[in-house]
Write a protein that binds this DNA or RNA. Sequence first.
DNA 1: TAAACGTGGCT
DNA 2: TAGCCAAGTTT
Length: 345
Amino acid sequence: MFKRPVFNNTLLNWYQANKRQLPWRQTSDPFKIWLSEVMLQQTQVITVIPYYEKFITKYKDLDALAEADEQALLKDWEGLGYYNRIRNFQHAVKEVQEKYDSKVPDNPDEFFKLKGVGPYIGGAVQSIAFNNQLAAVDGNVLRVMSRLNRDKRDMTKASVQKDVKKYIESDMPLEAGDYNQALMELGAIICTPRTPKCLICPVKAHCEAEKANEVMEYPLKKKQKAKQEYYYNVFFILNDKDEIMLIKQEDDLLKGMYELPRFDVDTSIESIEEKYNLTLSQPSAPIGSHKHIFTHKIWYMEGYIVYTADHNEDFIPLSDLQNLPMSVAMQKMIQLIYPEGESGL
DNA sequence: TAAACGTGGCT
DNA sequence: TAGCCAAGTTT
């Protein structure tokens, strides 16, 4: 094991001299810090920055976000992915508004009970916003710690992550928030997954993997499962009032987002007419296709145009298309017939 | 415990 | 370029 007190001081000094000026480091507002942590979940810093700026401009405080329209939030979150994050965040923020007088709890036990607050976000917010002595163990920290200690355990297991958290908290510097960010920053800037910059690493003297010339062997990684593939026909169902049929997704995947009617490739037009009580023209020839890759599945979509004389609440004016939250998968399909911004005509 | 959950950057 | 990975949480 490496010498913690010396390591901690070295790391903190390096952080103070080298930290990036990120937008959420310019505030001490617990609400904004919390928001940034929710956005940063499984999402790169460079991707988060514009979303963070948009949200703190539009939703200036916790009450503003608590009282926002959910669909408007989803629209603003559009493209960031993992859409349950913003739904859970609003749920949590509403609870803070009602139970804690709109003040983010500085009591970890209360904060950890809120929706969407897990071991990482709980530790991050409590340490950064309130200087509570808790660790924030993310992918960066797990990689750094596995290399420092030549730790061969499976870092994807919750039990191991819990152990690493306990280990860090066993010798936590007083500046808990800075220390957590220093550990993460080291992982993001120096101790990177593929091309770690060991030559300029401030703590290489403490690194067991570096001493053994085995840095690239950590963390241990296991082969990931193959993604399941799905084949869909996607329909642009248009009526004579310049309206298009859209479905609000209620399944877990992309819940709350709107999508074009999407069916397994072997679904007949007749069964679609029956399901939605519509009279449809024969589909056009395929107008294009798109392959969309999710974390755990792949969609192969082929687009068709279909006409109808019917109108109902599932049809929305084409001019409203750009106002509804839509997944990137569907945006790519819509671009097949309305290339680059022409969808809002 | 392990699978589900989005999207884009990077090599 | 195909695949890994990103300031993880929920069920």
